[in-house]
Computed example of a mutant assay.
Amino acid sequence: MTDHVRDLEAVREATDRLLGAMGKSDDGAVAEPSLLPGWSRGHVLAHLSRNADALVNVLQGRPMYASSETRDADIERDAPRPLATQLDDVRESGAAFLAAATEPADWSRTVTLRNGVTDSASRLPFRRLVEVELHHVDLGVGYTLEDLPDEFVTRENDFLAERFAGHPSVAPTTAVAPDGRVWTTGGGEGAPVTVRGTAPEILGWLCGRRDGSALAVEGGTLPALPPL
């Protein structure tokens, strides 16, 4: 069962880590490229702030974003801001999300996210945690997939493996970590494939942050995954 209270504390801790890491940078670093193609670090920080606002909307029964165009325009507008402004925004918008998430609510209710995706309200804190942790990696400031908390890596691998399960373009795939953790995904045409590697390397492949070249593949070639 998802423990949203525990996840909210994890969000708080992850946000503090990100703010501490970026606080060692300067305005010039914000304009530099992130690890996400086409986005500067300023884009990543702006996205994190606006995502927190969007999740408050979801918690309070409003559309996540007014539109995809508005979402993109807001990120472009905010990306060039100075570092101090960016960090204040991440801090304040993140605090507003945590405050909204501590209001009495029916956490078993179904909520609607972007593009009509639905989920249990209880999973929103973990979704925010994913945003903060993976985008901390994307900032390219020394925090890598290997630095992510082990429990987070396992849960995100669980989520992504389930997301691609049964996908017609992904061959049946079993991913195995050295410690025995196993994730199964895919289910489309093609012979079954086994992928072996560390849990962070498997996560990098599943979330599109790494090309999978560090993984050992048995029974065929590494499946190309659809974009998230």
Rank of each mutant, 00 (worst) to 15 (best):
L87R: 12
A95F: 11
E103N: 14
G116C: 14
A121E: 07
L124M: 14
E69I: 14
N115L: 12
T112F: 06
T118D: 08
M64D: 00
L129Y: 04
A84M: 06
G94M: 05
G61T: 11
A100H: 07
L134E: 04
L129V: 04
V117T: 10
F126W: 11
T110A: 12
A96S: 06
Q60V: 14
S122C: 15
L87D: 12
W107E: 09
V117G: 05
V111E: 10
D119V: 09
R114Q: 09
Q86P: 04
D119F: 10
D89Q: 11
P104K: 03
D74S: 01
S108D: 13
P125K: 03
A105E: 14
R128A: 01
H135I: 10
S93H: 03
D74G: 02
R123M: 12
L59D: 05
R71E: 00
P82G: 12
V132K: 03
P104F: 05
P80A: 02
W107A: 07
L139S: 05
A66H: 07
S108F: 01
R123T: 11
L87F: 13
D74C: 03
R127V: 12
T102D: 15
L113F: 03
T110W: 12
D89G: 08
R128I: 00
R71V: 01
L134S: 05
P80Y: 00
R71S: 02
L113G: 06
E92Y: 08
L129P: 00
L113N: 06
E69T: 11
T118W: 05
A99R: 03
L134W: 09
D74V: 07
R127C: 05
N115S: 15
P63K: 10
L129I: 04
T110D: 07
V132Q: 08
H136R: 02
D72A: 13
V111K: 02
E69F: 09
A79R: 09
A96L: 04
A84E: 14
P80G: 01
A96F: 08
D106G: 08
A84L: 13
S93F: 01
S122K: 15
S67I: 00
L113W: 03
T70M: 04
A73P: 03
T102S: 15
V130E: 07
E92A: 09
L87Y: 13
E69S: 13
A79D: 01
P63G: 08
P80V: 02
E133H: 10
V90Q: 08
T70Q: 09
D138Q: 03
H136V: 03
T70H: 06
L59N: 06
V117L: 06
L134A: 04
R71H: 01
L98E: 12
S120T: 15
S108Q: 08
D74A: 06
E131H: 15
A84H: 15
P63Y: 10
F126K: 05
D88W: 05
